[in-house]
Design a protein around this nucleic acid. Sequence first.
DNA 1: CGGCATCCTTTCTGATACTG
DNA 2: CAGTATCAGAAAGGATGCCG
Lengths: 95, 95
Amino acid sequence: MTRVVRMIQGRWKLPILFRLYADPSMRTSRLRRDLPGISQKMLTQHLRELESDRLIERIDFGEKPPRVEYQLSEAGKGLLPVLIATRNFSASHPA
Amino acid sequence: MTRVVRMIQGRWKLPILFRLYADPSMRTSRLRRDLPGISQKMLTQHLRELESDRLIERIDFGEKPPRVEYQLSEAGKGLLPVLIATRNFSASHPA
DNA sequence: CGGCATCCTTTCTGATACTG
DNA sequence: CAGTATCAGAAAGGATGCCG
């Protein structure tokens, strides 16, 4: 359990996963636009960590200019119930 | 959503909630014993934060020596689906 | 027993500049 | 566009000592 906690720990981990849950495949720039306030650094860093935790997959189209997309891996999709439960809780929870 | 993310952010937040989910009411000392590695400081600090976020309730029995118990609040119980989903994911996820 | 205060270290995050 | 590198500040966490 501690392991899962660590995997989703980080200011933007869940928000990123949420975006990839709402949109199956997202380009880096779009991901960034959809996460107001995130810095270039944290976006990349978190994406790298999520990737090495096998929760997301990075697809490099090898184009020029660069085009890279991210999506939930099969393992990552196992988190959907967590994401959904979190969203539900959030929705039923006025500040 | 950001708000919920912040509420469960912290090395021991989810582990604490998990313990209170497994055992409806827990004494401080027991909570501490059940969370190997947690420091006195972080336990208290996280409990305070969870309390001010209304996820748990603190019951002071006003005894001497002190006896204090913590439990999930009604609002906190709304997190059960999240906890359960997290546990399931964790269980289905070998390192 | 449960908790507070302090100090210190580690980790995290953001800003900025630069690259292919 | 996507990413790396570096630096500095902020925040998180741990150790210790003390109290009612």
